[in-house]
């Protein structure tokens, strides 16, 4: 959704495209795979946009593209109204202080030979934010903010539990006081009781510091709890976007319906739920027309023939489906 309201978006992506070359076997012909295929989105300051989709939907690639880590072949990203500088340039490095990334696997994201205090303090040194003599105080502050005890400062990653490690990663991401946090499956590797602790902490930190967030996850329940707005991705495209209150209560796109229906709810029998047939399609072999049509229970001839554009279907709601009535013109110009 592109809004040109009075409040300017913090980050705005226009028609982002990312293509990878994929080879079948060692000597096979390289085929282009459009992992991200014309994505438009914007995030307001302090807002959380949830991105959901199955593996291969391009949601992680999208997250990296928003930060400029993965360059886009087409389209543009604007941060605070200015075009994103190229990867690796001094301007881009400077901007990275304002936008940070949190990955799923904290052990891989941390250096096992450095204490956690050294790692949390690293962005402060890299971006020359806090003079050396005050760094310890700021690190202690950050540790308390994410629910770690300052006396754990000299521990190494392997001495901490999974939940504590993720807290370290989050503290490090917050060190440079970012305006945007891209979280890629930040709680998926954690047990439910710990997951709830980290989700609550992220929400508190966000409220307190007014950080905007792009929250990427396959877990609909967690996304509903975190996000103000949710975009559903299928094969590199957004197929539906709406506020998280309405999208899970009344999904419009048949794929969103199936996703919502696939979440096992205690006490609700499996019968009567929409169980999709078939597998998520291979991005290298995109079906004609609407990419979802081979799995869609409602598909008709038009779905096989033409790609449905993402259209506004209600106030603040878009969907890309021929069978969902639009209210006006396609929004993706």
């Amino acid at each position: 959704m592109i809004s040109h309201s009075a409040n300017a978006p913090l980050i705005e992506a226009k028609d982002l495209v990312r293509t990878y070359e994929v080879r079948q076997g060692m000597f096979g012909k390289a085929t282009p795979v459009r992992a991200v295929d014309g994505i438009n989105l914007s995030v307001m300051p302090g807002e959380t946009l949830g991105v959901v989709g199955e593996s291969g939907s391009g949601k992680s690639t999208l997250g990296r593209m928003l930060l400029g880590i993965d360059p886009s072949q087409e389209g543009e990203t604007f941060f605070e109204g200015k075009p994103m500088p190229k990867l690796g340039t001094p301007e881009w490095r400077a901007l990275r202080a304002k936008m940070q990334l949190v990955y799923q696997d904290p052990l891989a994201a941390l250096d096992r030979r450095l204490t956690i205090a050294e790692q949390i303090g690293e962005p402060l040194a890299i971006h020359k934010l806090v003079p050396k003599e005050h760094r310890g105080t700021r690190v202690a502050e950050l540790m308390v903010a994410v629910g770690l005890r300052p006396d754990q400062a000299d521990r190494y990653p392997h001495e901490l539990s999974g939940g504590q490690r993720q807290r370290v990663v989050i503290a490090r991401a917050l060190a440079s006081r970012p305006k945007l946090l891209v979280c890629d499956e930040p709680v998926s590797a954690l047990d439910v009781s710990i997951q709830a602790q980290v989700v609550n902490m992220l929400r508190d930190l966000q409220e307190k510091n007014g950080i905007a967030m792009v929250f990427i996850s396959h877990d609909l329940k967690v996304v509903r709890n975190m996000a103000d707005r949710v975009a559903v991705m299928y094969l590199g495209r957004i197929v539906e976007e709406a506020s998280s209150d309405v999208i899970f209560a009344a999904p419009l796109h048949p794929y969103t319906k199936a996703l919502v229906s696939s979440v096992p709810v205690p006490g609700k029998p499996l019968k009567g739920r929409v169980i999709l047939q078939g597998e998520p399609p291979n991005p290298a072999n995109r079906p004609s027309g609407c990419a979802f049509h081979p799995r869609c229970p409602l598909a008709t001839d038009i779905c096989r023939a033409s790609v449905p554009p993402l259209r506004q279907v209600a106030d603040g709601r878009t969907a890309a489906c021929h069978l969902v009535a639009g209210v006006d013109q396609p929004v993706a110009a």
Binding site: S161, G163, Q164, V192, S193, I194, Q195, A196, Q197, V199, N200, R203, L220, K221, V222, R224, N225, S244, D245, F248, A249, V260, V263, V265
Partner: peptide, 18 residues
């Protein structure tokens, strides 16, 4: 501790500690 997919969006109730 499990977030819900229906009903009002409320703060999660974690189990403290590990």
């Amino acid at each position: 501790a499990i977030p819900r997919l229906d009903g009002p969006r409320e703060r999660l109730i974690p189990i403290p500690g590990t």
